[in-house]
Design a protein around this nucleic acid. Sequence first.
DNA 1: ATCGACCGGTCGC
DNA 2: TGCGACCGGTCGA
Lengths: 390, 390
Amino acid sequence: MPRSRGQIDTLLGNLERLRENSGLSRADLERRLVLGPGWISRFETGETLPSVDVLLAILAEIGGDPVELFSNLPKPETGAAPIVRSISAEPSGDDLSVRFTYANHDARHLLPRATLGEFESVVRALRDGLARNGDGDAQAIKTNAVAHAFRVATTLWPHANPSDLWWFVVYRAYCDPYNHPARSGRLGFEQSWKRTAGWALEEILVRHYRPFLATKGIDIAISSTVEKRRIIGALDLPIRMEADKIDVVLTGGTPEGPVFFGVVHVKASFAERRTDDVPMSEALSRAGYTSPLWTMDCKSMPGATPINRGELGEADGDRGAKRRDIEDEGYFTGCFSYNANTRPSPASLPVERRIQVCDFNDPDDAFSRFVIDRWHAFRARRETAVRPSP
Amino acid sequence: MPRSRGQIDTLLGNLERLRENSGLSRADLERRLVLGPGWISRFETGETLPSVDVLLAILAEIGGDPVELFSNLPKPETGAAPIVRSISAEPSGDDLSVRFTYANHDARHLLPRATLGEFESVVRALRDGLARNGDGDAQAIKTNAVAHAFRVATTLWPHANPSDLWWFVVYRAYCDPYNHPARSGRLGFEQSWKRTAGWALEEILVRHYRPFLATKGIDIAISSTVEKRRIIGALDLPIRMEADKIDVVLTGGTPEGPVFFGVVHVKASFAERRTDDVPMSEALSRAGYTSPLWTMDCKSMPGATPINRGELGEADGDRGAKRRDIEDEGYFTGCFSYNANTRPSPASLPVERRIQVCDFNDPDDAFSRFVIDRWHAFRARRETAVRPSP
DNA sequence: ATCGACCGGTCGC
DNA sequence: TGCGACCGGTCGA
């Protein structure tokens, strides 16, 4: 059932009537206000809701009385005129229909066995987290707000596709300006998301696996720049490495202290950007280090009921360039996707060339087993090198 | 002199008074409407202009009479209540002050010796071009509109920094929704710009240099995918090349027909994306082909009076990674910037490692001379190879 | 203050 | 139809 917009429809109808009374056509008005073709129609139908400057500019041109604009408005029933948000939700049987603007579409995504209350607690986690902005370190607060909201979502809905929660819930909620404190008012939330989401994803990786891996003598961490530079300086690789390109660092414990054995490349999605990390990853891989790609593999086409298929395509037949980068070229030491729609590689492939699919239900999973195995192999090679047989 | 908003200020003042009469604090109202902190203050001060749904939702909560909202509004003087645009201009002595929203700032850029009429003709060229959208091939029309508007700008203002015209005029005008036909209404114009601007820039390169280079027996062109694949297939390079990564193709005329001798990598700005093109460019360079980077080198920090410094940094002292990619690593066969603020490399560097700065005043310039020289050298090597001395 | 990497809607092929 | 590359505000270092 579409939300009632009785008041708004009446107001916009009044606007159209005043314009017609003035004798000005829509095109006339667009020309006078220096608007591209079709905007007046768009305002009058409510496809785009005019703001007060637009209302007043139109009234000035057509000589309309502002008071008439608001004549005959129906009384507001309780909750009848909500603010149009870029994300909302409503129950749909036992499921929850999440609605959001997606490019030119009013899109829906069905969350199976979810309630409105749960949805609101996820959005509230985000909004309350973001509201702390201004207290101190702005970005850490944003990163925390996103990472925490996502954790709330995966905890409430363990059966859901994690990538869908990231893509259809947390991302869309972040892009609703009203979920931010107004002091961020004119921030570009889509751009802000990119920066914040990138860091939040690294946080999510580390928070989810760090305690479990610690029990296996392995540390997974977001290192400081100086720490990264120290690691790079000790590596002796054949390419110029940039510390900034290192996302998450893997070290294993030894009697002599922690030893670097790899990095994790964290990406929400690929586009053509996957190639950015390739030179470093290939150099690390060839030198025996571990360098997997860890990704939400988010990608959908705008539409009314978008499907987050990801970018890795089919596992057999005509495989795309992104899949071949991993399965054939070995640019990364394996790939771990948290999108249930990602097609895993055949199990016949060596694990270093395989795309595997994981979730956030238990940190003892394919990713952590891979990391543990790689550390054991690295340590064994290292001990052989350190203590060569006589 | 700031633009008068008498009507708007009065209306928003009425809104505040009605809210105070209701006894609800700003924070109360934000909580009831599920808004982040500070939004009501932002609406009441006009920092963010509320749209009709927001107005009606506030009135419903505070029980205010919509008619009161519009009481006591001053009569609209001629042009007193213009629509807030994301770009506008006003004379400033002999110069023109271009105003636009830039993130959280109301920004200005001074165009020396420019008039309001000239500015409007540039924006009109863009708007009229975009209005043809719907007639046929949507993207070609957008690309043409941008390329043409830029050409109008460089022709009207030959003394201006081309990169500034691209960055502060054409880009900002494109991001004003009202310069598009309303059918594009909810398109993401920033995202649309990225796709469109990338193609438009290739068009601009080709349109500017093609006639002049043709007189030297050289063709510069945007090739079809099949043509690119044919070229790649004939190359025998040591890497997997993707046809999609080829922007603009250089061929020279010979008695046996046109011969491929290079590509041009076209970029509005770099960020970390410069590395995308490196593997192909390096492979081409090493094989004796020509593979320059051609760029607007656009980059500024948001602020009230932004400066489009570009990303290539200082030419001496601590040179950044982007500059070293060209000057030291030789990842590209030279670099040509159309940003007057880009620091050129010292002339002591070989031209294949030099960053040079050009403009659009005469196609007989450093870029075309470079292309011509490279073709002559390529042809000479080719003839030697084809007809080896006995 | 400057430098660097983050990512996704768009739209042709 | 889906794959692929386009680019810039953001924000820590």
